[in-house]
Design a protein around this nucleic acid. Structure first.
Lengths: 183, 183
DNA sequence: GACCGTATGTTAACACTGTTAACAACAGTT
DNA sequence: AACTGTTGTTAACAGTGTTAACATACGGTC
C-alpha cells in the first residue's frame, strides 16, 4: 500500500513531466510546475529523483520504452527483412515527429553538456540497425555503406520536417521510395 | 563616438552570448552571465534586445552570416555545378558540427514554442538548395526527389554524428561518396 | 547658451526557478 | 517499545528573467 503510494507519486511526476515537456519544451521545463501538476510539494520530486535532470532522464526512458514496444510490434508484423527496415524507418520518423517538443532532447540529446546517458537514451535506431543488419546478411549487401544511408535518410527526414521544408507525409513518401530503390 | 559605444556594447553582448551558448548550451543560457562577461550591468541587455530570446536570435543571425559568407566562397571557388552541391553539403555538415552546443538550436530551432524566426534563421540549406536546383536544371534531372535526398543526407549526417554513431570524418566520407553516386 | 527629448547605462525590486536543510508522519525491524 | 529508513512537508538559499525609477550624456531647437 505504501509502496504503491511511492510508485504513484513517481509515476505521476513522470507523466506530469511529459506534459510539461510537451507544453514548455526542455529549456522552460519547470520542476515546480511539474510538482504542482502532480499535486505534491515542490520538494517532493527530490525524494524520487536526484535532480531535475534525473527526472527528465526518467521521462526519456519512459518514452523510449513505448518506442521499443512499437518497434517490436512492427518487427513481428513484417516477416520480410526488407519490409522491416522500411517500416521501422518510417515509423521512427512518425514517432519522433509525434513527440512534439520532445524532439530537441531526443534528436540531439540537447547538448553534450548533459550527461551522455541522455544522448544514449535518445538513440532510437537500435531496432532499425538490427533489422538492417539482418537484411544485409540475407541479401549479401555491404552493411557499412547501407547503414549510413538508411540512418541518415531517416534522421534527415525528421530534421527536414522539423525545419519546415516539407510536410510529414511528403517526408514519409520520399523516404519510403528512397529506401525501396536503395535496398 | 557615442554611436560606436552603442554598437560596442551590442556587439560585446552578442560575442559574449556566443561563448555562453557554447559553454552552457541553450537551456542554461544565463543573460546575467552574458552581461557580466560583457562587463555591463545585468539590465543593460534590455537596452539593445527586447528579450533574452531576442539576444539569442541576434546571435543566431550572427552565426548565420558567417555561414553564408563561407557558402558564398565555396560557391565561387567551384565552378562545376555538381562539385558545388557536394562541397556545400560537406561544408554544411562540418560547419554545424563545429558549432558545438549551438546545434540544438540550429538543427531543431529548439522547439516550436519559440518564434518561427529562430527556426527560419536556423535553416542553413539555402545555398545548398539553390546550387542544387542549378545543377538539376543543367543535368536535366528531377529536382524534387533529388532535393529530398541531398538535404536529408546532409541533415542526417549531422544528426548521426551528433548522436555518436559515427565520427565526423566517417560521416563526411560517407556523405561524399553517397552524393557522388547520386548526382 | 539654455532647454528638451532620446538613447543608453545604472541600481533596486519583483516573481520565479532549482536545490537543500529541518522537521513530521509513518512503515517495518529488532 | 525504541529505532531506523522512507516519503512527504515547509522554509530558506542563491540565481534567474524582467521591469521600474533614476542618472547621464548626446543632438537638435528656441
Amino acid at each position: 500500500m505504501e509502496k504503491n503510494r511511492e510508485n504513484d507519486v513517481r509515476l505521476r511526476l513522470i507523466r506530469a513531466g511529459l506534459c510539461e515537456l510537451e507544453e514548455h519544451g526542455v529549456s522552460d521545463f519547470s520542476l515546480r510546475r511539474v510538482a504542482a501538476a502532480a499535486e505534491v510539494s515542490c520538494a517532493a520530486p527530490y525524494r524520487h529523483f536526484k535532480d531535475k535532470n534525473e527526472l527528465i532522464l526518467a521521462i526519456i526512458a519512459h518514452v523510449r520504452e513505448s518506442w521499443e514496444l512499437l518497434a517490436k510490434n512492427i518487427y513481428e508484423i513484417y516477416s520480410d527483412k526488407k519490409d522491416r527496415v522500411v517500416q521501422l524507418s518510417v515509423a521512427a520518423v512518425r514517432f519522433w515527429l509525434a513527440n512534439g517538443n520532445f524532439r530537441s532532447v531526443l534528436l540531439t540529446g540537447q547538448s553534450e553538456l548533459d550527461d551522455p546517458r541522455r544522448k544514449e537514451l535518445s538513440k532510437f535506431d537500435a531496432p532499425l540497425t538490427s533489422a538492417l543488419s539482418e537484411y544485409t546478411a540475407e541479401a549479401n549487401k555491404d552493411k557499412g555503406e547501407l547503414e549510413f544511408l538508411v540512418l541518415s535518410l531517416t534522421y534527415g527526414a525528421v530534421s527536414l520536417t522539423v525545419g519546415g521544408n516539407i510536410s510529414t507525409e511528403a517526408a514519409v513518401e520520399n523516404l519510403r521510395s528512397a529506401l525501396h530503390s536503395l535496398l
